[in-house]
Amino acid sequence: MSGRADTFWQQRRISTTTRELTCVACPMGCGLRVELDENNRVLSVAGNACKRGDAYARAECTKPLRSFTSTMRVEGGEAPLVSVKSAEPVPKAKLFDCVKAGNACAAKAPVAIGDVLLANAAGTGVDLIATNRVAKKREAIAV
């Protein structure tokens, strides 16, 4: 990390861009101003009330990640769908691809919480995991 004087001189020499973000590390929601150089490196973070804001701004500008939840179809289950979550956060740019990959699959009942329903969603290396249970459909009993 460069010190203040360094940052000052870098700003003079190279073209910088500024990004405005809202910190989500806590409910305070500080408005952050992040200065980036042409290689998308963080030069400075301002507006944060604490260290977590600085860390959030740096992560958000260089490698934004998101966890997500969705649903997957279930074959032969008591319910038509099961809810799923990403086992870990995925790159933000891959969110839609991951949801689509999950929608293209079908799980087979019974499903238990924690079952891996899709490994390596959209090439992210992250699995989709069941967050609910679905029992096998009971055969209709003739009376």
Partner: peptide, 12 residues
């Protein structure tokens, strides 16, 4: 709504 939800549900 929580700031986190404004950012991650709308701004994203």
């Amino acid at each position: 709504g929580l700031t986190r939800n404004i950012v991650q549900c709308l701004e994203d």
